[in-house]
Amino acid sequence: MRVKVRIYCKQCGEKFVLRGRREMDRIETGFKRCLCDNADEFIIEEEAL
């Protein structure tokens, strides 16, 4: 299932809007880390397309 994902970085406040796939309990977007090099602390919101 395709989903729209909003990712907010808790460290610098940067926002990203991506499309991804929901697979079981996981969402795959290809996103690895923020521009500030944060790889762990995010707020993730998902919306069905």
Rank of each mutant, 00 (worst) to 15 (best):
R22G: 08
I27P: 08
A39K: 15
G30F: 02
I27H: 09
F42Y: 11
K4N: 12
C9F: 00
I7W: 00
R26D: 10
A39I: 13
L18K: 02
R19D: 14
M24E: 14
R26A: 05
R6S: 14
F16M: 06
E14D: 10
Y8C: 02
G13W: 00
G30A: 10
N38Q: 14
F16E: 11
E14W: 01
L49P: 14
I44Y: 04
E47S: 11
F42I: 05
I7E: 03
C12T: 11
D37G: 00
I7N: 01
V5Q: 11
D40W: 12
T29N: 07
C36N: 08
C36M: 10
I43E: 15
N38C: 14
K32N: 09
I27W: 06
M1R: 05
V5I: 11
D25L: 11
V3G: 08
C36G: 11
L35S: 13
F31I: 01
A48S: 13
R21A: 04
A48G: 09
G20N: 06
Q11D: 14
I27L: 11
V17D: 15
E45C: 04
V17R: 07
I27T: 07
E41I: 02
R21G: 00
D37K: 08
E41V: 02
E46Q: 13
Y8F: 02
R22V: 14
M1G: 05
I7A: 03
F31A: 02
E14Y: 06
E28T: 06
D40R: 15
I43R: 10
L18Y: 01
V17T: 14
E46G: 08
D37S: 10
E46D: 04
C9A: 06
A39N: 15
R2M: 11
M24Y: 08
R22P: 00
A48L: 13
D40M: 15
I7C: 01
I44W: 02
C36Y: 03
E14S: 09
E46M: 09
F16D: 08
E14T: 12
E23N: 11
L18P: 06
C36S: 10
G20Y: 01
C36Q: 08
C9M: 04
V17L: 15
E41S: 13
I43P: 00
G20V: 02
G13L: 04
A48V: 12
E47N: 05
D25T: 05
G30R: 07
E46L: 10
Q11M: 10
